[in-house]
Amino acid sequence: MDAWQLDALTRRARRLAAPGQRRILGIAGAPGAGKSTLAAELVAALGGSAVLVPMDGFHLAQAELRRLGRADRKGAPDTFDAVGYAALLARLREPAPGAVVYAPAFDRALEEAVAGSIAVAPDVPLVITEGNYLLHDDEAWAPVRAFIDEAWFLELDPVVRVRRLVDRHVRFGKERPYAERWVSDSDEANARLVAQGRHHADLVVPVAVGPG
């Protein structure tokens, strides 16, 4: 994402971070579209006015995925606790006076969610959440959109996105041939599902990338 585009998105996010009222900004998009990178950059730019609560903290544990027979589809909609995620967004949208809300985070080194990792103080005006299925309207995911005040959908050239995904899997320990198969068979199937929710976004962001 180029500097001009990031600056424009930061200005838009800053308008949501008005003191005295909690807002939730959701950033959706296919795997590898740059959601987590953009969300982290926005939080850094906004300082203490924003906190990041990723959807990935609601991955089901590996042991539970194996019990359910879904370990080979990790990342699909039914491999998350969608109801728990919606319940957390409801708590975050209406913070209780003086109460800190603790959210889970996903540890890529462990490949597991870790509870109580993210503290959200009641006076933080903007929560930024990002993930694949924020705009997914099937079954348990349908209530999520109602808790998000503004939703963005990131679009990145598919060739660049797939290359980034493979490189990310390799960086976290997968052999490249395995990573390529996983992206082709799993991540891209999820990407097609994610694209179906694009029309629910308030803003579609074509991600600009530099050469290389």
Rank of each mutant, 00 (worst) to 15 (best):
residue 2 D to L: 11
residue 5 Q to L: 13
residue 5 Q to F: 08
residue 7 D to T: 14
residue 7 D to Q: 15
residue 10 T to V: 07
residue 11 R to C: 05
residue 12 R to T: 14
residue 14 R to P: 00
residue 14 R to V: 01
residue 15 R to G: 10
residue 15 R to S: 11
residue 18 A to D: 03
residue 20 G to H: 05
residue 21 Q to L: 14
residue 21 Q to K: 14
residue 22 R to G: 05
residue 25 L to W: 00
residue 28 A to D: 08
residue 29 G to F: 12
residue 29 G to H: 13
residue 30 A to C: 15
residue 34 G to E: 01
residue 39 A to L: 02
residue 41 E to M: 13
residue 41 E to I: 02
residue 43 V to N: 12
residue 44 A to W: 01
residue 48 G to L: 12
residue 51 V to T: 07
residue 52 L to G: 09
residue 54 P to Q: 04
residue 59 H to S: 09
residue 63 A to L: 13
residue 66 R to L: 05
residue 68 L to P: 00
residue 68 L to N: 08
residue 68 L to S: 07
residue 69 G to V: 12
residue 70 R to M: 12
residue 70 R to Y: 11
residue 72 D to R: 09
residue 76 A to M: 01
residue 81 D to Q: 09
residue 84 G to D: 03
residue 86 A to D: 08
residue 86 A to V: 03
residue 89 L to G: 07
residue 90 A to R: 10
residue 92 L to V: 07
residue 93 R to I: 02
residue 100 V to K: 07
residue 101 V to K: 10
residue 104 P to E: 00
residue 105 A to Q: 13
residue 111 E to R: 15
residue 111 E to V: 09
residue 112 E to M: 10
residue 112 E to T: 10
residue 113 A to D: 02
residue 114 V to D: 02
residue 117 S to W: 02
residue 120 V to M: 09
residue 122 P to T: 04
residue 123 D to L: 10
residue 126 L to F: 06
residue 126 L to T: 05
residue 126 L to V: 08
residue 127 V to H: 00
residue 128 I to V: 15
residue 128 I to P: 01
residue 128 I to F: 03
residue 129 T to F: 01
residue 129 T to D: 03
residue 129 T to R: 03
residue 130 E to Y: 08
residue 132 N to L: 14
residue 132 N to C: 13
residue 133 Y to N: 04
residue 137 D to S: 06
residue 137 D to N: 02
residue 139 E to C: 10
residue 145 R to D: 09
residue 150 E to G: 09
residue 154 L to R: 01
residue 155 E to W: 02
residue 157 D to H: 12
residue 164 R to H: 13
residue 165 L to K: 10
residue 165 L to C: 14
residue 166 V to K: 02
residue 167 D to Y: 02
residue 168 R to P: 08
residue 171 R to P: 05
residue 172 F to K: 07
residue 175 E to S: 14
residue 178 Y to E: 15
residue 180 E to M: 07
residue 183 V to P: 06
residue 184 S to L: 14
residue 185 D to C: 04
residue 192 R to G: 13
residue 195 A to T: 06
residue 195 A to D: 04
residue 197 G to K: 02
residue 200 H to K: 15
residue 212 G to T: 13
